[in-house]
Design a protein around this nucleic acid. Sequence first.
DNA 1: TTGGTATTTCGCCAAACACCGAAATAATAG
DNA 2: CTATTATTTCGGTGTTTGGCGAAATACCAA
Lengths: 99, 99
Amino acid sequence: MNEIFKALADPTRREILRVLRQREHSAGELSELFALSKSTLSGHFNVLKAADLIEFSKTGTTIMYRLNTSIFEEVVSHLFDFFGSNPSSETQPEKRSES
Amino acid sequence: MNEIFKALADPTRREILRVLRQREHSAGELSELFALSKSTLSGHFNVLKAADLIEFSKTGTTIMYRLNTSIFEEVVSHLFDFFGSNPSSETQPEKRSES
DNA sequence: TTGGTATTTCGCCAAACACCGAAATAATAG
DNA sequence: CTATTATTTCGGTGTTTGGCGAAATACCAA
C-alpha cells in the first residue's frame, strides 16, 4: 500500500498512468510524450512496477508498458479505510495497522 | 490534487487520518498516539490542512482536528481518471491536464 | 563480428522531506 | 504581570527523491 501511494504522489507518474489508460505504450513512445530524459522515465517505470501499477512485456528490444487496472479496487478500498462512512463496523479502531 | 496525493504518500499522515476517522482529536491527544515529537506532528497537520484533508477549530489553546470526509469523493473521481473502465467516454485523451 | 536501436543502470547533484529540540506564540489562571 | 499549558514556528541534520548524461545491457540485422 505504501508503495502505491508513494507512486501516485508524483505528477509525472500519474500522467504516465493516464496515458497508459488509453492503450499500452513502449518506453520509447512514452518518452516522446514527456520532456524528460529516458533514464528519468525509466526510473518512474521502476517505481510504478514496484507498486504493481503497471505491467510490461518484452518483444525484441522493445518493452511495452500497460496499466494494471486491478490495483484500482485495492486503492479505493484503502481510501475507505480513512474516509468511509461507517468506521466502527468496517475496521477495528484499536488496530491501527499499516499494511 | 497534487497536494492530496502528496499528503497521502506518508504513512504517518494516513494513520492520522485513520485515527481522525473515529472522532476528532486535539493536537495533544494525537501526539500521544504517535512516537513522534509534537513539532513533527504539527508539520504533518499543516500538510493535511494544505490538502484540505482535515479541518480544525480552536477553543482556548486547544486545537481540535477532524477529518474532511468530503474530499474522499474527489480523490476517487481522480482515481477513475487513471483506472476507470471506459477511458474515451470519460476523459479527453488529448487534454492530459494536471489539476 | 560490427553496428544500430531500445532501454536500463550508474554516479552525481540539488531540492524536498521527515525528523528533532529550542524558541516563539497564544490563551488562561492566579 | 507571571506562570502554565497547548501548539506552532524556526533552524538544523540526515535521508530520499527526481533529475541528468554517460556507460552498460540486450536484441537484431547485416
